[in-house]
Design a protein around this nucleic acid. Sequence first.
DNA 1: GGGTGCATGTAATGGGTTACATGATTCT
DNA 2: AGAATCATGTAACCCATTACATGCACCC
Lengths: 200, 200
Amino acid sequence: MARRSSSSMEVLLGLLTIEPMSGYDLGQMIRESIGHFWNESYGQIYPNLKTLAAEGSVTSKIEKRRGKPDRHIYSITKKGRERLAKWLAVPPQPEVPRNEMLLKLFFGSQVSPDIPIAYLTRMVECERAALERFRQIHAAISTNKQYPDTPYWKMAARFGVTEMEAHLRWADETLAELKKIVGKQRSRAETRKENSRASK
Amino acid sequence: MARRSSSSMEVLLGLLTIEPMSGYDLGQMIRESIGHFWNESYGQIYPNLKTLAAEGSVTSKIEKRRGKPDRHIYSITKKGRERLAKWLAVPPQPEVPRNEMLLKLFFGSQVSPDIPIAYLTRMVECERAALERFRQIHAAISTNKQYPDTPYWKMAARFGVTEMEAHLRWADETLAELKKIVGKQRSRAETRKENSRASK
DNA sequence: GGGTGCATGTAATGGGTTACATGATTCT
DNA sequence: AGAATCATGTAACCCATTACATGCACCC
């Protein structure tokens, strides 16, 4: 997608401030903790770690384990922290995310209303589940020991909660609207049928 | 970004159901009408129109105009409508958008709270403006003549309104939280100063 | 015996933005 | 005179995902 200022390396640096980790661990962590607003594939993580190591932003140690494959444990260096801080200081640019669901809805008149009804219904289920997850994450962070990171993690979780609630409200409203359209089409079809019957 | 099922061609087809247009017009329209949830660059639009023309989903006519450059006016064909309908029938996959702002906030403890405060404040301004725009768009659609598309366009606009309102609520809450953190750091700094004064 | 998880990595592929090129007209 | 808008297009480049490759351990 060609984001000019990649951020893919900085995520790794950011997570390594929590504790030293392997590439595999980083992948796991990204999916579990920030997966709701950021993801990174291994095809990106491993090469980026190498680049960061080459420039001295991270160091690596090999952890030998009999039986299991070796683990390359990466730690953030002073230089890495500087790079992270520099990136954090740059105000994030407002980006327009591509929302395929809205795009399809925008062209909804081209197909039967049953189609948007179907995927919105499914979306509601997904978002209800996501909302629950966000609430649990928030609760888990709140009861845990308080790190300096805790308030920030809570803010991110609160974002998820607020957004999911908004989406659900919108979806309810929209589904009601779509059902009204279906109703109108049905009654028009009825009228047509009656007319043709009357004209016979 | 490698979305497996590109959608970039279907946007063009969708917009061409409204009326025949040139590549340039399509670019304008995308920015003005669906720019809040989808964008497309000319480097994408022109080649895609050629591809669509080659496969017979659109036809083109050249509009000669003295002085100004020629315009290639594209119209959607029956085949194009079929392709669009087929795409519309596929339920949109829930995608995790990359939210750089949340990512930076997540690592907020690494820098002074003034930094997130600054960009959240700016974000609030942008989103307030966006909210206003969405409301105006919604009002404009509502007062206009009713096309079959109208209800769907309204739904998309309502999504924007709902989401912006949610973001603004969250930003307010988050800014308050960040200011509390600043307060705590100030008071800690005060205490340290007093302690060192007392120890002199 | 076969699937799943751990663990690292590379290459192919594809999508998308930016920058560049061109050229006329209109506005300041 | 110079900037901006209209209008079309191409090429370079970047970023990211997917698929593939490898190999051991553990569980059913």
